[in-house]
Design a protein around this nucleic acid. Structure first.
Lengths: 225, 225
DNA sequence: CTCTGTCTACTTGTATACAACTTTGTTCCT
DNA sequence: AGGAACAAAGTTGTATACAAGTAGACAGAG
């Protein structure tokens, strides 16, 4: 499994290396505890140390590796870490919904509906990459609506990891058949419906439910692998 | 006002430049909208572009500057952004306290008491830098206790900014006299007392109160400047 | 056998060089 | 005068070179 090249269009070498290493760490090709050397990686990718160095710093900021005095050691993203990642996602979206309560969400709801349409289209075309991207966009659109610089920054700091995790889990979901895919679409539709109800408590409940459900999906996915 | 050199002991050039630029951005020496060039800054600091480049990337991750195609533009940290920063701090500490409810907080409480003692000592010695550092340590100790990798990562991503803001505000507090200083110590003592009560609701209330109080202090500090 | 000093290979941090691209100001043509 | 081509300066991204420091092996002294 490799990183979608379309997502690297116009990216620098450093960003490309970052993405590929991130994927390798998350899907377990690079195992926790392994140590990485700038020189070795640069040789592997056939580049100089500069872009590798950039990648290492980025991955360190994302918490996927730990920079030590000699060699960076892979931290990895096990089941526990993924759960914790979803903790933070819930924290963010819950906060955002709370903050948006009462404001005009008309344009937002239209955007979200459009994204759900695109998800269904991607499902019909059997395109998991596009599907995962729209899934990400759905949540990102909600978070952006809060117009809260720090929350947005927070999202950006986990965005790439979330994207990569989604990419992997979505491929699994697609492999399990139409029914599971529609289930994911339905989850988002319910979230949008709660938003349209306009009742803050209902929204909070549905966000809580969304992530509770994601937890069990994760457990399912984890126990399979 | 300059960055405490003791905090840069053993740091690389890149980290040093990062800290100095961060301080200049936060205290307004570098104003929002200004554009920074790697070459110019490297010349200013008398170094090569490498450490400057590292600094730019770090500050960009912290959201203090925005990397564009040519030249990085200063985003800055106005009153609104500081408020938003405290939103996130509340989000973190509230979550941590919630998660720790019920677990054994014996050793934690001892650590916190020690830190408060050090704060009082720093107050007595009229040492705002040490005081700010202990203030930071207090909250960091609580957050570390949750043993939640993502929350910890999240804290690390704002830690330096929080530290710098604390450094600045603490100097202001010290300038306003003994009474204000003791007020800050008292705030922390109340937080610890709530923790010792063992009642989760009481803890949540006191955390909420702590940050509500911080908001008004910020408003006060902001309206003065 | 254990401890210590040294030596080697490898690591990171920093400096410098270069290529590709963007912006801007100028000049020339209409 | 207005606009387009062009030139020049500045910018980033990447490669390479070098210095300083660290881990680990290894040999020799106690």
């Amino acid at each position: 499994m490799s990183y979608p090249e379309a997502w690297l269009r116009g990216a620098s070498l450093g960003e490309g290396i970052t993405c590929q290493l991130r994927l390798q760490i998350i899907n377990g090709t690079l195992k926790p505890g392994e140590t990485l050397s700038e020189n070795r990686i640069a040789a592997d990718f056939g580049t100089s140390r500069s872009p590798v160095r950039e990648a290492m710093k980025t991955l360190s900021n994302e918490g996927l590796i730990r920079l030590e005095r000699m060699g960076a050691v892979v931290v990895g993203l096990g089941p526990k870490e993924v759960e914790e990642l979803y903790d933070v996602r819930y924290l963010i979206e819950s906060f955002v919904q709370q903050r948006m309560a009462g404001s005009d969400t008309g344009p937002l709801k239209i955007s979200l509906q459009r994204i759900i349409d695109k998800m269904e289209l991607a499902a019909k075309h059997g395109d998991p990459v596009e599907f995962a991207f729209q899934d990400l966009s759905f949540h990102e659109t909600i978070i952006a609506e809060a117009k809260h610089s720090r929350i947005w920054q927070l999202w950006r700091s986990i965005r790439q990891i979330v994207m990569t995790v989604m990419l992997i889990t979505t491929e699994e979901v697609f492999a399990e058949g139409e029914r599971r895919i529609q289930g994911v679409v339905e989850k988002h539709r319910r979230l949008l419906q709660a938003l349209q109800s306009g009742d803050p408590d209902e929204v909070q409940r549905s966000v809580r439910h969304y992530f509770d459900d994601s937890y069990v999906t994760l457990q399912h996915s984890i126990s399979r692998s």
